[in-house]
Amino acid sequence: MKGSGGSLGGAVFPNAPSLDRPGTGRAGAHHGELIQGVFQDERGRLHRGLITLPLSHMNSLALFEVADEQGVSVVPPEKMKAAKAALLTLRHLDSHHLGGLLTVESAIPVGHGYGSSTADVVASIRAVADAFEMQLRPSVVCRLAVEAERASDAIAFEDQAVLFAQREGVVIEHFGDALPPIWVIGFKANDGQLVDTLALPPARYSSEEIQTFAMLRGLAARSIKYQDPHLLGQAATLSAKISQRHLAKAQFATALGIANNFDACGVQVAHSGSLIGIILDATAPGVAGTARNIAEAAATAGFKDVVVQPIYSVRRPS
């Protein structure tokens, strides 16, 4: 959507900043990934890639007030990557001569694989764009986000399923629809200990694992095309099992057992965090009761911070 336009020094700009209204931006957390691995592009080259499991009920909110001089200051000051993202967005909008004050407020816990940092970055990019009465395409937001923080995820696409190259900021495959309707009962393994995501070395996958990812991609494509939560759950489970060989989570087998006992669709994890999620078909009769029982079983088994999360079942006004 184009802005209303304005004039500055005689020239007409399609998107001049509104100096009296701060821009706002919002971005959601995620619950790790449904699938993560390496995937071929159409020329046969391998890229690290993932399918994010987005959450809509935890958000980061950013506010950007444009100032007529260079430089971005941020509150709280430790959100350096968000400030960097704001600067990159100003440059993208051909407005590097401007700056401003960025305020970020987040309800997303840090260090468990909820993607708090990416949410801050994406919310900030959106806030700056909004100050210019602009909405950027998800692909542009993702590219800027990767520039700001080295590795990102696909939350800018919200519930639209994409296979995203998290270190390059490009989409490997658009699956063409939203994820199937699911609920995720999420909890923390490893006694809720923090993980320093970016300090982790990237996983080195075996040939068999790399070949397996090709099939996982096919399963994801099919599950999205036919909105099949069971197939998606089976694919996520296999991806989680592969992840377990590279970054083991304590009590992963226990989580698999709970999922089996309650006939869940499958199990997903934050491949570089401590989150585990048990996936349910949102359209199954009695899903709320099953979710409660699974949550109870997970808490009894010693998992921390158990939450029942319908995935994008209620769309928030943006």
């Binding site: 068999e208 090709a214 096919g218 099919r222 197939l231």
Partner: peptide, 21 residues
């Protein structure tokens, strides 16, 4: 050689895309 059997992940991919389960 492992390459012989590993190659068939591509067939597994094609099967799941057209059949699902």
């Amino acid at each position: 050689s492992d390459g012989n059997w590993l190659a068939y992940a591509r067939l597994a991919d094609l099967f799941v895309r057209s059949m699902g389960q």
